[in-house]
Simulated scan of single mutants.
Amino acid sequence: MKPSQLQDHLRRCHPDKTEKDLKYFQTLKDKFQKRPTLDRMFASTSQRNDHGLQASYNISLLIAKSGKPHTIGEKLNLPAVEEVLKTVLHKPASDIIKRVPLSNNTVERRIDEMSSDIEIFLCNYLQTTHFSIQLDESTLPDNATLLLAYVRFIMNQEIYEELLFARTLITDTKGESIFHVLKDYFIKEAIPLSNITSVATDGAPAMVGRYRGLISYLKQNVTGVLAIHCVIHRQHLVRKNLSVRLHESLHLVIDAVNRIRSNALNTRFV
């Protein structure tokens, strides 16, 4: 529109604004651009929900690390947050609490999703790098046998150690069965066995047997793999041959520490 037409429109339709300066119209423009719209309202609500979702994942991670029951999120964490908001910040907590889902099933689902994501990332990284692995099988109270596998690798010039998997040995605990569980997992996750540079185990025959141990089967598939006896198991073997005097001294110290730690009020003395 031509300037003359704009001036004519201003005089005829908005006579009360003919004497206003440029700053007034700029203020009107800013107010118009910042007015609440439907898109902005939905975007703001979505952003708040995203923050609540992120808080839900972070708290679920803390619950998983603490080893507490999943119900602690709904029974303790949310009431604690609500009390802090009301007492310290003097803010209404109902709207904020509603945006942070922490029910038992929700926390369990969050933990499963995070663990699955970590496993996928770890397996993808192990597909292209060399690493060492530690294997150990243990029997649970219900007589089920569990195979644990830890990996140690270098990433960004730092050494990391992560739990790779925990699998139940369905048939038996022989070296061949353990090797097949390990091999099947590596095939499933597309991790080459050749990326294993060393393996650490205890001294059980199923692990270090010359002909039917896990290491013998692994060496048949991975040339040059280094077998290491677990240091912790070595310490356990050494402890069996301690002198009587040293054994009694250590036993006395262990009893004293356990007695103190059995009472929460006495733990400050340790």
Rank of each mutant, 00 (worst) to 15 (best):
V244S: 11
D255G: 14
M114Y: 04
L182N: 03
K34C: 05
Q157W: 05
S249C: 15
P141A: 03
T18Q: 10
H51K: 06
G213H: 03
K65C: 01
Y160S: 10
L135P: 02
Q235P: 07
I96C: 09
F32Q: 08
S4C: 12
L122M: 12
I215D: 00
D21W: 06
D117H: 09
L62M: 06
R259A: 15
V84P: 04
Q7M: 13
D21H: 11
V225Y: 00
A227L: 05
K98V: 03
L85A: 02
M41A: 13
D142V: 09
E119G: 02
N156L: 00
Q127V: 02
H14C: 05
Q33R: 14
K91D: 09
R152D: 02
Y211D: 04
I191D: 11
Q47G: 10
E83R: 07
T37P: 00
V225F: 05
I120T: 00
M207E: 15
K75N: 14
S4W: 15
I72H: 06
R152P: 07
Y150Q: 01
K75Q: 13
N143P: 00
R212W: 05
T197S: 04
F186Y: 05
N58M: 06
K20S: 10
I260L: 13
I133S: 00
S138V: 03
Y185P: 06
A206S: 15
I191R: 09
S103P: 14
K20Y: 14
L169A: 10
H14V: 01
G175W: 11
L85S: 01
G203N: 12
N156I: 01
S116Y: 05
S115F: 11
K183V: 10
L182Q: 09
D30L: 07
N266T: 06
K98H: 12
R110W: 13
L6M: 13
R12C: 15
L237Y: 02
I187M: 13
I63V: 13
A149H: 12
A43E: 09
A166D: 00
Q33I: 15
D39F: 09
T168I: 10
N49E: 11
K188H: 14
S115E: 15
L214R: 05
L140V: 11
S66V: 11
R110S: 07
T87G: 05
T168Q: 08
S56D: 08
F165R: 11
L10V: 04
D16N: 08
Q235F: 04
L135A: 00
T168M: 06
I232H: 09
R239G: 10
T27W: 08
V88R: 02
K183W: 09
V253P: 08
M155K: 06
L10G: 01
D30W: 06
R234K: 06
K219L: 00
